[in-house]
């Protein structure tokens, strides 16, 4: 047996420490982001209290007027930061996205897992992964020039017929920039995430279970519905939560088609909205003209709320996916 020289032992130790440091870097980044965002939002938390989550007015105050002090924080007179419209906009657009994306993605995954084979399967899988790789500004570009006009001229007027039954579908349709377009574009963006994860889960269903179903006289479809889908249920919910987190955090595509609403809770599916992520991107320059910097802190609090929401869904998602399938890895951004 060859003796391990002390030099290589030292090298091993050095390497171990170096890789360990590198491995801790994501943790450091995560902690740094969390701390910076939290510290920056403290003045806003003090200023607004819980009203930040329930108020509907986002008002930088009279920036050309006098300053006033409230709760120990100085701000331009009349400043108030109520993020409810943005929280609602984020939740509404992402839930609409889920309502569309989840069934579409599950059905697509079933096709990919059980109905196509060989090169067709490879090509379809590549296409779905490509959809996941398209930059969000390109989605936004497509949203602006194709989707929003289509919603305004065709899809929207069609949906207003449902308005007789469901008030939320009542017009006017407007320019197509708004909740519906945001939901549709987000749906398209999260379909590949849910599809890829679900496909991998479905492929892990033991063949014995499926053959057992066939042996009991089930049709192919019944095997999928009664055996495969229940088998992957936990992982599926995880995949959905993963997609939800992505939809809530998406910025550019939504910013381009949301209609940038302010102080306004959506009255119908055609209303212009704003999401938390879009507001942060859109309003930082306005916020910086506030001499008291309170507006910057308010945006930080918005980032904090957004981060917490996405983290909660992510925690949930990872936990469920890991419990469901044995560490399923999807080849796409998730």
């Amino acid at each position: 047996m060859r003796k391990v020289s002390s030099a290589s032992k030292t090298a091993d130790k050095v390497f171990r420490v170096a890789t360990g440091l590198c491995a801790s870097s994501p943790v450091l980044f995560l902690v740094a982001i969390g701390i910076v965002v939290f510290i920056e939002s403290v003045p806003s938390i003090k200023f607004m209290g819980w009203h930040f989550l329930t108020g509907t007015q986002w008002n930088l105050g009279d920036m050309y007027g006098n300053l006033e002090v409230k709760n120990g924080v100085s701000a331009p007179a009349g400043a108030t930061y109520g993020a409810l419209p943005y929280i609602v906009g984020t939740l509404a657009s992402s839930v609409i996205a889920l309502l569309i994306a989840v069934p579409v993605a599950i059905f697509t995954a079933i096709i990919l897992a059980y109905r196509v084979r060989g090169p067709v399967k490879t090509v379809l899988s590549i296409l779905v992964e490509l959809l996941a790789g398209i930059p969000s500004v390109v989605f936004g570009l497509w949203g602006v020039i194709v989707l929003a006009p289509w919603v305004a001229q065709f899809f929207g007027p069609l949906l207003t017929h449902l308005g007789v039954v469901i008030p939320f579908f009542r017009g006017p349709v407007g320019t197509g920039m708004g909740l519906l377009s945001s939901g549709l574009i987000l749906a398209l963006m999260i379909v590949p995430i849910i599809t890829a994860t679900t496909r991998d889960l479905l492929e892990q269903v033991p063949i014995l279970y499926r053959e057992g179903g066939i042996g009991l006289g089930m049709t192919n479809w019944e095997v999928v519905r009664k055996i495969c889908l229940p088998y992957v249920k936990d992982g599926l919910i995880g995949a959905v939560a993963l997609g939800w987190g992505r939809a809530m955090g998406e910025t550019m595509a939504v910013l381009m088609v949301s209609g940038s609403a302010i102080n306004y809770l959506p009255h119908s599916i055609f209303s212009p909205i704003s999401t938390m992520a879009a507001v942060i991107a859109d309003q930082l320059d306005s916020a910086l003209t506030d001499a008291t910097h309170l507006a910057v802190h308010a945006l930080a609090e918005l980032a904090l709320v957004l981060m917490l929401l996405t983290l909660i869904t992510n925690f949930l998602a990872r936990w469920l996916v890991h419990r469901g399938g044995q560490r399923v890895r999807s080849g796409v951004r998730a």
Binding site: L242, G249, A303
Partner: peptide, 14 residues
Amino acid sequence: EVLSGVPSIVIGYF
């Protein structure tokens, strides 16, 4: 994985 779930705009803001 949690870090990969942080919205990119939050990273930009940071």
